[in-house]
Amino acid sequence: MKFPQLLSVAALASLAFAGCSKDNDAQNQAKLEVRLTDAPGDFSRVNLDVQQIEVHLKDEADPTGWERLAFTPQALNILDYVNGRSALLVSTDFAPGDLKEIRLILGPNNTVTTRDGETYTLKTPSGQTSGVKLKLDKVTLRASETYQLLLDFDVAKSIVERGNWKPGNDKKERYLLKPVVRLVAQEIAGGIYGQVTPAAALPQVLAIRSSLTPADTFSTSADATGAYRLQSLPSGTYRLEYFPSTTAPANQPAYRPATRTGIVVVNNQQTNVPSVSLVN
């Protein structure tokens, strides 16, 4: 999200109103993230054709309990996401409540590339065409809180070589895809707080998670003392942008936007940002 260096008072008033409405709506919603990471295997590339992600909201036996999450179908080389890296699949507002299961539905275009550069289609056994289902144990989404579901894909265990395959045999797929996925569920409780001066500037504060592509943006307003706080932030590196929503009185220095970069947020910790001034 980008802003011009100077915004009109009217535009900022509109931003403040929209931000307030968004914040009020957000207070009644939970935030749900779904991420994918990988335990390495002895391959050079593994492409997963991820088509759909769903969560189950009712008892396991109720087939109507599945709800589709906002997700764009895409191919992911999961070997890009090792050693602490992860792919953000879903980041969405969600109604508070209990989650029972998550289901990852794969398409037919899954492939594996071996160390010698040969690429093979990964055949999925018929019993798993309905999706990879993972049970959730006591996962409750609460209003204004963020919850993350990390799908830890084990490549070494998930890709199985057929016992009857022989080099040069083009009629049989060499590998089967039998996904082995460990689910890690956690509440996200990082935060940022600080002070903006002068408080009379009525500043808006944007926290942009710059370590994520595409970037994720959170917003709030400073209170009457210039203090602000953003809660339930996912861990990562943030850029903070501050915008005055009013003009300075006559004969006083003009209010200017300000930016702070490299703000690191860690789960279950509150990051204090040094005071920011909106005047030269």
Rank of each mutant, 00 (worst) to 15 (best):
residue 216 D to H: 06
residue 28 N to P: 00
residue 177 L to E: 04
residue 127 G to A: 09
residue 113 T to L: 03
residue 161 E to L: 09
residue 160 V to Y: 08
residue 116 D to G: 01
residue 131 G to N: 07
residue 33 E to Y: 14
residue 227 A to Q: 14
residue 61 A to L: 07
residue 7 L to T: 12
residue 41 G to Q: 08
residue 189 A to Q: 10
residue 116 D to Y: 04
residue 256 R to C: 01
residue 230 L to H: 03
residue 35 R to C: 13
residue 94 F to K: 11
residue 91 S to G: 11
residue 117 G to F: 01
residue 247 T to G: 05
residue 124 T to D: 01
residue 124 T to P: 00
residue 13 A to G: 15
residue 192 I to N: 01
residue 84 G to W: 09
residue 76 L to N: 05
residue 182 R to W: 04
residue 103 R to Y: 08
residue 166 K to Y: 05
residue 212 L to A: 12
residue 117 G to E: 06
residue 270 Q to T: 13
residue 139 V to A: 05
residue 65 G to N: 06
residue 107 G to K: 09
residue 163 G to P: 02
residue 225 T to P: 00
residue 31 K to Y: 12
residue 197 T to P: 00
residue 16 A to L: 13
residue 2 K to I: 11
residue 257 P to H: 05
residue 111 T to F: 10
residue 7 L to Y: 01
residue 221 S to F: 15
residue 231 Q to M: 02
residue 98 D to E: 14
residue 14 S to Y: 04
residue 274 P to K: 08
residue 178 K to Y: 04
residue 186 Q to E: 15
residue 155 V to K: 05
residue 57 L to E: 12
residue 82 V to G: 00
residue 124 T to R: 10
residue 51 Q to R: 15
residue 245 S to V: 03
residue 265 V to P: 01
residue 133 K to H: 02
residue 147 Y to I: 11
residue 144 S to F: 11
residue 28 N to Y: 12
residue 45 R to C: 03
residue 171 K to C: 05
residue 76 L to W: 11
residue 18 A to T: 10
residue 130 S to D: 14
residue 73 P to E: 06
residue 135 K to G: 13
residue 177 L to S: 04
residue 166 K to D: 03
residue 160 V to G: 09
residue 27 Q to T: 12
